[in-house]
Simulated assay, not measured.
Amino acid sequence: MEDDDILDSQDTRDSSEGPQQRPQSLMLAFFGNHVLEEGDLCVYSGSIIDVLGRVGIGEQAVRSTLTRMVNRGLLMRQREGRKMFFGLTPQATRVLQDGRARIWQQGAVNDDWDGSWTLLAFSLPDSWKRQRHDLRSRLTWSGFGALYSGLWIAPGNVDVAAVVSDLGLASHVKIFHAQADVATDIELMIRDTWDLESIAARYVTFDKRWTAHLDAGSGDDPIGTRLRLVSEWLWTIRTDPRLPARHLPPDWPAHTAQETFRRVADQTARPAHRMAGDLLETARLR
């Protein structure tokens, strides 16, 4: 199980249609919104059922997702009397912290690229299909694209050594940090390496959907709105390697989509926090 599997547990339908929300992605968005910053907090299953029910996830689906996530090492159980509470494991905390950095700190627009690239070359035995899949998945999540079949590239100085080490592939991988020669057409390389159309379509879809929400007013369910917002934004940005803005089309839609995301996020932050205080029954992890 890899980070991208955890954070992108949604159907890979056409980008122009947006994501098909699945219980695990919404569950992680819930814990990221209301538990991650609290540290040792756990939440009563009935509260989780209530909140996810607001975004169309039924009780049975919530219960089975909780069980599955416990079995996958993402959540831990804690009984308090006759009630069952759930909290984050260290693995889920690490993944959600990574996602939080992508969402709230890095942003979708790379305006300060220093001209450097990280290159990773690998050669794996033909029989290592799972290892190859895992490596490619982790590289995609880390912002890499396939320059050639065994040579991947990402903008900036990416610390990918830990990823390779976690997968046990350090002896099969070579990592370089470099700059492109003036003879290299960077914009052409970007178009050849990444599917810019698909990435842009995700941003356009997100912006249209959430601009319509802003136009319709805030509504009366900020906790559900924020849950959908964060889950959809993560789906939108997960395949975007934050390519240098100066080498992208001038009308690159990440700018307006990010502005829309932040407007809705600002609009829902305090109301969702207040509602969570009223709705969620919590306890401290022992």
Rank of each mutant, 00 (worst) to 15 (best):
R242T: 11
L41C: 01
A154V: 09
A283K: 03
A245D: 12
A101R: 14
L147M: 12
A154N: 13
R130E: 15
E38Q: 15
W117F: 09
A265M: 12
P249N: 04
H34Y: 15
P271K: 07
A108M: 06
E197R: 12
R130I: 08
A154G: 15
R270S: 04
A200H: 13
S123E: 15
V109F: 05
S25I: 05
A283F: 02
H177K: 14
F85E: 02
I175M: 07
D112W: 14
R136N: 08
G168R: 14
V164F: 08
N33I: 00
A276L: 06
V55Y: 04
G81S: 07
M84D: 05
P19S: 09
L167D: 08
D195M: 02
D14C: 04
E59F: 05
D111M: 08
D112G: 03
W233I: 00
Q10N: 13
S142I: 04
S123W: 08
Q106S: 08
G107I: 02
P249A: 07
K208E: 13
A29E: 00
A161Q: 15
K129V: 14
I57M: 14
L147E: 12
L28Q: 08
E232M: 05
D5C: 04
D192N: 11
L119V: 13
L120H: 07
L75G: 01
R13W: 07
D98M: 13
G143Y: 06
L280M: 10
D266Q: 02
L139Q: 06
S123V: 09
T89W: 08
T256I: 09
A283R: 02
H213I: 06
M76V: 08
K83F: 15
D8I: 02
A265W: 06
W113A: 00
L139H: 12
T268H: 00
R13L: 13
A29K: 03
R22P: 04
M1P: 08
F176W: 14
V173L: 09
Q258V: 00
E80G: 01
R68P: 03
T193N: 13
D181E: 10
T193V: 08
V158T: 10
A283S: 12
A162M: 12
E187Q: 14
I237R: 02
D240T: 07
M84C: 02
D159K: 11
S165G: 05
L135T: 05
E187H: 04
E259H: 05
L227W: 04
D134A: 11
R68D: 10
I199K: 00
L279Y: 09
R22I: 01
D14S: 10
E17H: 12
P249G: 02
T268F: 00
A154Q: 10
L167F: 10
L227A: 02
R72Y: 10
L248A: 06
H273D: 10
H133E: 14
S25M: 07
W233H: 00
M189Y: 04
P241T: 13
A200L: 11
E17T: 08
T193L: 05
W152L: 09
V43I: 15
A283P: 03
F30A: 01
P125S: 03
S127P: 04
F206H: 13
Y148H: 12
Q20S: 07
R226T: 01
S149W: 13
L214I: 10
R263C: 00
R191V: 10
Y203A: 01
A121H: 14
T12N: 09
K83D: 12
S171Y: 15
E232D: 13
T256E: 10
S64P: 10
P241S: 06
Y203L: 00
D50A: 02
P250Q: 11
